[in-house]
Design a protein around this nucleic acid. Structure first.
Lengths: 350, 350
DNA sequence: CTGAAAGCGCTTACAG
DNA sequence: CTGAAAGCGCTTACAG
């Protein structure tokens, strides 16, 4: 019964060749027909489709990646997943990519540029079709890797860094989807000013790039009013948490009792601050207004409900993925920067 | 200058063949030496290592997957990422897998068995080396896929379903790492009983399998005391949230004022309940005790701090990944079920 | 312990 | 619009 000795490793998998045989065409034609490549007779396409469906054919991603030197995977780099912001971002991006047949390879950088570079280096070995990367701040090595790989890439959360020339920028492929962190912070500050607050503190943790952009937005707005002073800045490089927010609130109250509003850089800090206010029996917003940033789950539940900025992270994830898909199809994508805006959510804490 | 006509597609990538040439051995020997396969002269291994390092050689995952029919990717299926529980689980598993050279392909099932099956079907096309799957409850199709794929798999969070015969079970490869959800719930209930509570309500959302196991643990413990009655069960199939917890608390207070303790199935429900208690000016724990489950971030910050069960999810992720790695190396792993336990965290809310 | 041959299942690049 | 040939970069299975 021994057949051809040339088949020691039959896998049983239905291959392109099987479909080609069934449809009576060459494998290349099947490949082209199934990928929807131009220049295939519509009648043939239909015939191939039927055969493929009949045989239950599914392309082998590994073979495809090896032959084409491009996989069906997209790398998504986020700082962490313990902030719901990035979970929403990731889920939206992944959903969009998956619908288009791409898998997501998630890398968590922990706000560490060196770790980001290492992750990227590892993941690039898999020849991802595209990249989605949080922010603009990367190590020299990361930037070189990105440039050398020539893989389509969309940056998330922020707009093009100021001073790069905007639409006329010459750097190829510097696409991004986000909003102006500084503008959003300025708008929130503006809201507090309009409510009559004059001594507005800024309290932040982590001190990542977007935090510093918000700091800048707050600072510039206050400076315009002649109300800024360094003593109003409360910056702590440790990770953001409710406990830290509570500590900061207590310190600000005791060390700067004249402060009449506190802008917390992230909602979790504000949540902790509001609980601390209850403990210390400080009236919010009567004695001091408290606002946050991001509109995380629970911010409508706090006592009092929290005024904050709603960041459209799901929208960012979705739109960034769509732009990446367009780039992968070779379509022109302009302008490079997409501003999805933000929304001020005024509740009772301010 | 035209060289061999047999190289229309040189990629510039350093390949096994390059290393083999440099080391003066055959490509197969390089392959074996680099993978640490038995039966290679240690001196040759060293020589190959040096050449590989010198040339900056990194294996091509696609070629490897195609030839070996097994990738360096592990699929991890979790219900969602908006519960910090699963983020911790995922991060720990991913960290362990990454250190061993595996990438993680995350699938989010949204507690939907059909979606889980569809996801698995898609991800299986990538010939993952292994699988990490939350829970034991899967569709018929999922179970068939798992069995047919013959890919090593470790289930997360729960112990072997009761009644399957324990260690002597014949089903091959049914590995798991977790703890007894029912026991943990019973222990928490026991704590409330010891505090003198007699009318202990159970309030839950989502109603996934683990929730129902906790319900059962609570129920059995109360039945043993003759204290169980159906009216104490408050079950809502909608997703868990702080807002829902607040609503449930208000309803329980108004419809069952005799209840002297409420066991919320997840901390986020309890967080919402505690805020509602503040609004309604209900004294916790004096008028009613409130406990949660999971010890999520913030549970030590609430007013009052929340009594809960700390679930060792990072440990589960790490250990499950380690077991999977052992299975991939072909090592025997016994017993099939690993119980990592849980920890009662008593704070002021009970 | 080492290797020559073949093949994994696709796509590229070149013809026609 | 279609195809024959070659190759992507690795590992399997068989010898020796």
């Amino acid at each position: 019964m021994s057949d051809s000795p040339l088949r020691p490793r039959a896998t049983g998998r239905t291959t392109l060749a099987d479909v080609a045989r069934d449809a009576g065409v060459s494998p290349i034609t099947v490949s082209r027909a199934l990928r929807g490549e131009r220049a295939v007779d519509p009648a043939l396409v239909e015939r191939v489709r039927l055969s493929a469906h009949k045989l239950g054919y599914v392309p082998d991603p590994a073979a495809r990646a090896l032959a084409s030197r491009r996989s069906s995977q997209v790398v998504v780099l986020v700082p962490l997943l313990s902030n719901q912001l990035f979970v929403d971002l990731l889920e939206a991006a992944q959903g969009t990519l998956r619908a288009a047949g791409y898998q997501t390879l998630v890398g968590i950088t922990h706000y560490d540029a060196a770790e980001e570079e290492q992750l990227l280096r590892e993941l690039l070995l898999h020849r991802p079709a595209g990249l989605l990367i949080t922010g603009w701040q990367h190590s020299q090595g990361t930037r070189q890797l990105l440039a050398a790989s020539e893989i389509p890439c969309v940056h998330l959360m922020e707009l093009e860094p100021a001073g790069t020339g905007g639409d006329t920028g010459t750097a190829p492929g510097r696409h991004c989807v986000g909003f102006s962190q500084a503008d959003a912070a300025a708008a929130l500050t503006e809201h507090l000013l309009q409510r009559g607050r004059r001594r507005i503190a800024f309290a932040a943790a982590q001190l990542d790039a977007r935090t510093l952009q918000r700091l800048e937005g707050w600072r510039l707005r206050l400076q315009r009013e002649g109300l800024h002073e360094p003593a109003l800045e409360w910056l702590d490089p440790s990770p953001s948490s409710m406990a830290l927010g509570g500590d900061m609130f207590a310190r600000i109250r005791s060390e700067a009792p004249e402060v009449d509003a506190i802008f917390f850089n992230n909602d979790d800090l504000a949540h902790g601050a509001l609980l601390q206010a209850l403990r210390l029996q400080v009236q919010v917003p009567q004695q001091v207004a408290v606002v946050g940033f991001n509109d995380l789950p629970g911010s409508d539940q706090t006592l009092p409900p929290l005024t904050t900025v709603r960041t459209p992270r799901a929208d960012i994830g979705r739109q960034a993925a769509q732009r990446l898909l367009a780039l992968l199809r070779g379509e022109p994508v302009t302008p490079r920067a997409l501003d999805v805006g933000y929304e001020l959510v005024v509740r009772a804490s301010s």
